[in-house]
Computed example of a mutant assay.
Amino acid sequence: MEVSFNLIAQQLVTGLALGSIYVLIGVGLSLVFGLLTVVNFAHGAFFMVGAYIGVLVYARTGNFWLCMLVVPIASAALGMLAERFLIRPLYGRGIDYPLLLTFGLAYVLMDLVRMGFGVQGEQMETPELLQGAVDIGIGMFPLYRLFLIGVTAFVLLALWLLLEKTRFGLIVRAGARDPLVLRTLGINMSTIWLTIFGAGTAIAGLAGLLAAPMRGVSPEMGVPVLVEAFVITVVGGMGSLGGAVVAGLLVGVVVSFTTLFQPEFADFSMFALMAIMLIVRPNGLFGRKGLMA
Rank of each mutant, 00 (worst) to 15 (best):
I149L: 08
L129V: 15
M238I: 12
E83R: 10
A158F: 11
W160G: 04
F286C: 03
A247V: 02
V71A: 10
E228S: 15
F230N: 07
N188W: 09
M1G: 11
D267A: 14
L129A: 13
L78V: 12
Y107K: 02
L16M: 06
M270R: 12
E128N: 12
Y58E: 11
F168A: 03
L16S: 03
N40Q: 06
F230H: 07
V235W: 01
V38R: 01
L35R: 08
W160P: 00
A76E: 09
F286A: 04
G290P: 00
L31W: 02
C67R: 04
F117V: 00
R173L: 08
V235L: 01
R60N: 14
I232R: 04
P98I: 00
R281G: 05
S4I: 09
Y52G: 09
M110Y: 15
Y107V: 06
L206S: 07
E83C: 12
L66T: 07
L226T: 13
A199N: 08
I203W: 08
G137M: 04
M115W: 15
T37V: 14
S75R: 02
S256I: 04
L109W: 06
E220G: 10
L36D: 10
S20K: 01
R88M: 08
T201R: 01
R215W: 15
I95V: 14
V235Q: 00
G242N: 00
F271R: 03
